[in-house]
Amino acid sequence: MTATAFYPIGTPGQAWGAAEVAQWRSRQVRHRSYADDVLSKIDALRSRFDVLEYGRLDYAPDSYPLFAIKSRDWQEGLPTVLVTGGVHGYETSGVHGALEFVDRHAADYAGRANLLIAPCISPWAYERIHRWNPQAIDPNRSFREDSPAPESAALMRLVAPLSDSVLVHIDLHETTDSDESEFRPALAARDGKPFEPGEIPDGFYLVDDAQAPQPAFQQAVIAAVAKVTHIAPADDKGEIIGSAVVAPGVINYALRPLGLCAGVTDARYRTTTEVYPDSPRATPEQCNTAQATAVCAAIDYALAHP
């Protein structure tokens, strides 16, 4: 019996080749502007923070400069805080929550920590509201040696000289309804695997490092964010997105073996946030603020427990 197609590209049971990737890429439409939405906000921060271009993505006919924002009063000997957003370009609050943190809160840590914020790691995907880069590669499975994703490789080059000094790394993400309607079916089709429907959690949650968990740190972030937006409950299996809930709003992943951004340094405190913007109980503003609040809570805990 022939398998039923669940995605408009490819043949069920067969992984994509170059032709299918090209067909997928041809269907991607620019919906928003990296220059207008992100670069303009970074420019507005230049009077207060240092801004450096750490790479450039040339995806003809487009070219995207990659920027990181740094503490102007960078001091050797202080712990470093790494904040990343937009690894998946469609996860809007990851980008704008990072920028909100810089604008509203970063100055509070002057003289206490060196801050490095990369707010939009995947600008091509940001504009097209997608997880993948133009080669249908997920940057958040590509933080590894000889990375196939230039987005991931550029960030790894940026943080490599700082890795020993990074105390906390918080990577800002979203889980959306489109994960189930578009991105998971696309992933299964790309890899020639069957699509198995899942459940989208309603609320904020965190992903800790299964190989070096920091449960008290995760709970401090959850407690702070719970004042801004609701925390995702476990499903009927006691899971969130197929992983066991180990504490309210917390699951564990093997960050480094999976090539996830949150595993890119040896930071003692590492976490990935997941905001749910499609909830009727959350506004875009709440989602951005939840991300910024999570960053503050992560830094505050880490500085208090170095």
Results as ranks from 00 to 15, higher is better:
residue 5 A to R: 15
residue 6 F to L: 08
residue 10 G to C: 03
residue 12 P to R: 11
residue 15 A to F: 10
residue 16 W to I: 02
residue 17 G to Y: 09
residue 18 A to P: 07
residue 19 A to T: 11
residue 21 V to E: 15
residue 21 V to Y: 11
residue 22 A to G: 13
residue 25 R to F: 05
residue 26 S to I: 10
residue 33 S to N: 02
residue 35 A to G: 01
residue 36 D to Y: 00
residue 44 A to E: 10
residue 46 R to N: 01
residue 49 F to G: 01
residue 50 D to P: 03
residue 61 P to I: 07
residue 66 L to T: 01
residue 68 A to S: 06
residue 74 W to N: 02
residue 77 G to L: 10
residue 78 L to E: 09
residue 81 V to D: 04
residue 81 V to T: 11
residue 81 V to N: 02
residue 84 T to V: 15
residue 84 T to H: 14
residue 87 V to Q: 12
residue 89 G to H: 04
residue 90 Y to I: 04
residue 92 T to I: 15
residue 93 S to V: 13
residue 100 E to T: 08
residue 100 E to R: 15
residue 105 H to D: 04
residue 110 A to G: 12
residue 112 R to P: 01
residue 115 L to N: 10
residue 116 L to Q: 11
residue 129 I to H: 07
residue 145 E to Q: 06
residue 152 S to L: 02
residue 154 A to H: 06
residue 155 L to T: 00
residue 156 M to W: 07
residue 164 D to K: 07
residue 164 D to P: 02
residue 166 V to F: 03
residue 183 F to Y: 12
residue 187 L to A: 07
residue 188 A to H: 14
residue 189 A to F: 12
residue 196 E to N: 14
residue 199 E to V: 14
residue 199 E to C: 14
residue 199 E to I: 14
residue 203 G to N: 14
residue 204 F to C: 12
residue 205 Y to I: 05
residue 207 V to T: 11
residue 214 Q to R: 15
residue 215 P to F: 12
residue 217 F to E: 01
residue 218 Q to A: 09
residue 221 V to F: 06
residue 224 A to Y: 10
residue 225 V to L: 12
residue 228 V to S: 07
residue 232 A to M: 13
residue 235 D to R: 13
residue 241 I to E: 07
residue 242 G to Y: 15
residue 243 S to I: 04
residue 244 A to I: 06
residue 245 V to L: 10
residue 248 P to Y: 12
residue 253 Y to S: 11
residue 262 A to S: 15
residue 265 T to E: 05
residue 266 D to L: 09
residue 267 A to P: 05
residue 267 A to W: 08
residue 268 R to M: 13
residue 270 R to D: 07
residue 271 T to V: 15
residue 277 P to C: 04
residue 277 P to D: 10
residue 278 D to K: 04
residue 279 S to Q: 07
residue 292 A to L: 01
residue 305 H to G: 08
residue 306 P to G: 09
residue 306 P to S: 13
